[in-house]
Design a protein around this nucleic acid. Structure first.
Lengths: 121, 121
DNA sequence: CTATGTGCAAAGGGTTTGCAAGTAG
DNA sequence: CTACTTGCAAACCCTTTGCACATAG
């Protein structure tokens, strides 16, 4: 548990949004100017593999990281890009039943237009 | 409709698998050695935006392209990486109902271990 | 002490871009 | 003809790697 890892974890814990490695790097540099991007990635990789933080792959863009480690799905606004967490309880059981086979996990991203974006049209 | 675009489309139509841009490039070069990667991407982008072919973003790896343009979901074996198409009819309506708002679309990838990979353990 | 983590710079994979030359319609 | 497409190389973004040095425990 190095100073760098502690700082990165703290940044994630204090944010209620999803953060990219770049954003975390920027925020970390404010407190610890010597920190390197490689260190940020090292720690994000280590912590997401250890299940301490969550990681979200996004289509085309940079991965996002979040403090939540609970299983959840994502709601993405195609207008403004805002990403929020949602849950569809029972969905996994239903998918398993429909497929008729064991499931390791699933990734679901629902695309929408949020209220603001919808009214802006 | 250039010779290049026709060739790329033909390659996709003749394949029942998902193909990466790299694989398409390789296959296209066999018939048209002068073709460039940029041309392959140009055409794949144009055709997937036009809805003529399908595009699948994969976590971390290269995007895959497929002839099907019908809406469907994906089943990915975590063991061998094989990607197959599946459908969960009625899922969209159900997601819309649970969320209580309009949905543009959704992306669902179900992770599994296929029979072969499961028995190999 | 010693294994592990750091910072740096350079490399990597996948994709896009700028531009001069070529081609479809 | 003229706008669009090609091929090429270089650039791009995000992420990883190699390595000498520093540090946690």
């Amino acid at each position: 548990m190095t100073r760098q890892r502690e700082l990165i974890l703290q940044i994630l814990r204090q944010s209620d949004r999803h953060l990219t490695a770049d954003e975390i790097f920027f925020l970390a540099k404010l407190k610890l100017p010597s920190i390197a991007m490689a260190t940020v990635y090292n720690n994000l990789n280590a912590m997401s593999e250890a299940g301490v933080i969550g990681r979200v792959h996004t289509d085309g863009g940079a991965d996002c990281f979040e403090r939540t480690t609970e299983k959840h799905d994502h709601l993405l606004c195609d207008g403004c890009g805002r990403l929020t967490n949602v849950r569809f309880p029972g969905l996994e059981a239903q998918l398993r039943e429909t497929l008729g086979q064991e499931i390791e996990s699933y990734d679901l991203t629902v695309h929408c237009l949020c209220r603001e974006c919808r009214s802006r049209r």
